[in-house]
């Protein structure tokens, strides 16, 4: 409507709408404004505030008290904190390599044998299920005495497995549940990456006599790198923050075997009368770890560059 008025009477100054419309940069900012507001309100401000809170003794209900580095000293002196870091890293090492390799395999299979949107829909189905439901499902499936999977394992002679109840298997079992949940979604991301690789490259490779493996190693993998880096960075960050499956399936047990860093932070608040100082100090440490890991990942895999230019 505004635009019509401008053309109808050119003497009138261009309306606000049309001026914004003509300013590309401003328009861009307007488009990201809603998520920017959300980011500032729900991420940036709480994140910065939590850095301040980590230097305080505060339960959110009474007055805060500045204590300097005391929370960090207590944190670093706590064996449970170090163990939780170790458990978290173990989880990430179970979770990420298996999940990424499986997802890559599924994506390649899809590209080879089926283009069906139905298949792609089915693959992300586990990812669409709420985490709590998935965890409950596996608590029953993996139960040592009543669980379907254990009854199957006993029938084929593998024998009963403790899974969530066995401290040596619990963290790997949690990782297994999340691999099952996420690999389809990750496969779809990689599949989208595969679609961006020009077919002509493979034709040229075939003319040159390169076999499937060589094509995969020399064309597919290098050209998938930006997508793989994106997948790795986001899934590693998510993996470090594992909580919901554990909260439902093991509550950090047995014997503390699944107390990951986020479970540790949760305990500081809900089991230690809202000890926000310790909780935020641990969060700041986790934040620094994630920033470092992400920088290393992006640097070492040159995730911001594509090799496609080299092939032309």
């Amino acid at each position: 409507m505004a635009a019509i008025r401008v053309t109808a009477s050119p003497l009138v100054k261009p309306s606000l709408m049309s001026r914004i419309g003509n300013n590309q940069a401003l328009l861009g900012y307007l488009f990201i404004l809603p998520s920017l507001i959300g980011f500032i309100a729900f991420f940036a401000v709480p994140a910065i505030r939590s850095i301040f809170i980590s230097f305080q003794e505060w339960n959110l209900l009474t007055d805060a008290k500045y204590v300097g580095l005391e929370n960090y000293q207590e944190l670093f002196a706590d064996d449970r904190f170090w163990r939780s870091l170790q458990i978290t890293v173990t989880y990430v090492l179970w979770n990420i390599p298996l999940q990424t390799v499986l997802a890559l395999g599924i994506a390649l299979l899809m590209e080879r044998i089926s283009n069906s949107p139905l298949l792609r829909g089915l693959l992300i189905l586990p990812w669409l299920m709420p985490n709590v439901i998935v965890a409950m499902l596996f608590v029953w499936l993996l139960d040592p005495t009543l669980g379907l999977i254990n009854i199957f394992l006993q029938n084929i002679g593998v024998g009963q497995q403790g899974f969530f109840g066995d401290p040596n298997q619990a963290i790997a079992s949690i990782a297994g549940v999340n691999i099952w949940r996420h690999m389809g979604y990750t496969a779809i991301l990689i599949y989208a990456g595969l679609k961006t690789i020009p077919k002509s490259l493979y034709e040229a490779a075939r003319v040159d006599g390169a076999n499937g493996l060589v094509q995969f190693l020399r064309i597919t993998l290098p050209l998938l790198r930006p997508v793989l880096v994106f997948v790795m960075v986001t899934s590693v960050i998510g993996s470090f923050q594992i909580f919901d499956t554990i909260a439902v399936a093991t509550e950090g047990g047995p014997a503390g075997a699944t107390r990951t860093i986020i479970v540790y932070i949760y305990e500081q608040v809900f089991e230690r009368r809202i000890n926000m100082g310790m909780a935020t100090a641990a969060s700041v440490v986790l934040f620094l770890i994630l920033v470092s890991v992400t920088i290393v990942q992006i640097r070492s895999f040159r995730g911001n560059q594509s090799d496609l230019a080299d092939y032309s």
């Binding site: 608590v139 029953w140 969530f164 109840g165 047990g253």
Partner: peptide, 10 residues
């Protein structure tokens, strides 16, 4: 008795 592992989840 069933082991602790067996009792703990359900």
């Amino acid at each position: 008795a069933p082991s602790f592992e067996e009792v703990t989840s359900l």
